[in-house]
Amino acid sequence: MTDTQLRRYEIFVIERPGRPPVHAGSVHASDGELALQNARDVFARRPDCHGLWALPAEAITSHPAGSAEPPASVAPEQEPYLVFGKPGHKGVQTFLGTVQAASAAEALDAGRNTLGGGIVDWWVAPERCRLATQPEDAAPMFDPSKDKPFRDQAFYPVETMMRKLRRDRESGRAKP
């Protein structure tokens, strides 16, 4: 296939200030900056997004499922790893915290020892692979969705209109 759909990035959404980034899905993009732009269009068309993270799919190691090791650091030195976990079988991958580790395997161990119980599935990725929207990007990225109330079903008073129609019909005032 000559015409590729570019690299895949996993996307995490911060719904409100102070809430942890939660996995939303993935987008394809040629670089991280465009991944964040695409993620805005795909996952933040409504005003419930305060920030976005993008991680190249190949940078994530999951457990117990397992996957390829992320690209190794130049030297096997400790570096910060992001740790995500799925809380319970109906949960979604959610950011739990950062650990210092020299490999994904070490980061998984550290995460399991220090971050949260009840996690059924873990993801770790080197922090250096993450791209995130910055606080100063928030207004131009996310404010445009706020003046589009017509994207919300509550904008359409169809139940009220239906009730009125039915009432009019019952009381015989409906048009013939």
Binding site: R151, D152, Q153, F155, Y156, P157
Partner: peptide, 22 residues
């Protein structure tokens, strides 16, 4: 999870259509 997200948005689609028809 994709469906949960989609259903929330589809309610807007249904209602804008019903409003036109009404």
């Amino acid at each position: 999870r994709a469906m949960v997200r989609i259903c929330a948005e589809e309610n807007f689609h249904r209602k804008q259509g019903m409003e036109i028809v009404l």
